[in-house]
Design a protein around this nucleic acid. Structure first.
Lengths: 243, 243
DNA sequence: TATTTTTAATATGTATTACATAACAGCTAA
DNA sequence: TTAGCTGTTATGTAATACATATTAAAAATA
């Protein structure tokens, strides 16, 4: 075929990137036709006028972010991507800057406070019981590790109550990331303004608004801790002054 | 070299995926040595005992999620990834299921309510003035499009006040995605329980707690709208019953 | 000497070919 | 019918060759 590319693939740096976009538009059309099957790599290469290597790289990238899967002999099929599926390697790369880490820490706090409405909307008696069961275990916990695990379990359950799968995915990633930042000294429970039991009480008899206030108080140590460890300083190490 | 692979790359489906992981661990080590430069593709292929094609595909995937960049002749350098950088193609693919879309819509509501503390922490007089300026423009807006644009501008400014770059990135993506879902009939302002002006008042004289309540009321139409358009139904089209 | 131009070297980017491998379909034999 | 064999197929991997952009060194010019 011998198609010579005179670097006229506009805008995008490389042919692969351009091909990735081409594939995405192709996908958008296929989806509207309710067709979840892609042509073979060779055919696709022919259609787009590039080599199979380029198509493969582009497909691999799309596979990396979870919009499609491929199987031997079967071919390429479109899948419904999990929104935060591609975040795992980013977080695990250890390349996130301190500012980004702080961003994530803050996001977690925002979400835990902001999800009140959705917890209340879906809550059931069984949920209350499950939470109280965790609390009971917490009271009889011996080691610090046990307490930590149960603390995580309690909050994870609250997340799951929102029935928001993406939120749970996100939380799962953050939980692993911030395990180290948690202020789990032996007396961390003493410092808490409001306990898990208190939260459940509000959950039973309160409103989303009162639950937000309660959760804000419960997370007080996290707010303070964030200030200490992840202070939002500029590159010179000095805190930014507000005008 | 002729290394024959007897499919003993465990766990991972393909060599590329395994190589991607290998690269990530390699990166993690390099980062701790404060070395942001990767070996050449050929060297890396030699080191990992795979062909250059595989290394290139793995690198391409990492490039797709934003943990590294490559330039001709220069080579591969590590970068600090933007957390939500890889979300753009996922959202734009149009492959997200209705449940995922609803998840995102809910997340946005959670964040707008949950970010109160961070808005208050960083707020300045200039911010208040900027917001009031937007409100003034809103009052004199003629067309619906103008109103919508200013509405978005107002909320975007609130996001920016948190000084959380990742949050702003996330919001930017969602704003484009949900432009269609916004309930912007001509009288949408009339239905609002609390106006932008009201929010600014609370921002001036209130607390994070009172701001959350105000924002919750302000977003009331969004909450109701979500129920209508993106009702969380199962695949059979019937709403799930809670025990 | 200082500055511009040319040239050469280099690592990534793309194309081509060849073959390995897993999965599937169809066939055969028990 | 069912178990096992066999060939086909599309993806997965390897190897090679060359194009291209970028950098740096070398040469030419002022």
């Amino acid at each position: 075929m011998k198609t010579i590319h005179t670097t006229d693939y506009r805008k995008d740096r490389s042919l692969v990137e351009q091909t990735q976009k081409d594939l995405l538009t192709y996908i958008a059309n296929q989806k509207s036709n309710d067709n979840s099957h892609m042509p073979k790599e060779n055919e696709m290469a022919e259609i787009l006028g590039v080599s199979r290597v380029v198509v493969r790289e582009a497909l691999s990238r799309l596979r990396a972010i979870g919009v499609l899967e491929t199987k031997r002999k079967k071919g390429t099929v479109l899948v419904s991507p999990r929104i935060f599926g591609s975040l795992k390697p980013i977080i695990e790369s250890g390349l996130l800057e301190r500012d980004s880490l702080r961003d994530l820490y803050e996001l977690r706090l925002m979400l835990e406070i902001g999800m009140a409405d959705f917890i209340f909307r879906q809550k059931t008696e069984k949920d209350i019981e499950a939470l109280q069961e965790i609390i009971e275990k917490e009271e009889t916990a011996k080691t610090t590790e046990e307490s930590i695990a149960l603390d995580i379990q309690f909050h994870s359950y609250l997340y799951s109550m929102t029935k928001n799968a993406s939120l749970s995915d996100f939380h799962f990633l953050l939980e692993k990331l911030f395990a180290m930042y948690a202020p789990r000294t032996k007396d961390y429970k003493v410092k808490q303004v409001i306990s898990h039991a208190g939260l459940v009480e509000v959950l039973r008899f309160g409103s989303p608004d009162s639950f937000r206030i309660a959760m804000r108080l419960h997370l007080n140590t996290q707010f303070e801790n964030m200030e200490k460890i992840l202070d939002r300083t500029d590159t010179n190490g000095k805190a930014k002054a507000n005008t």
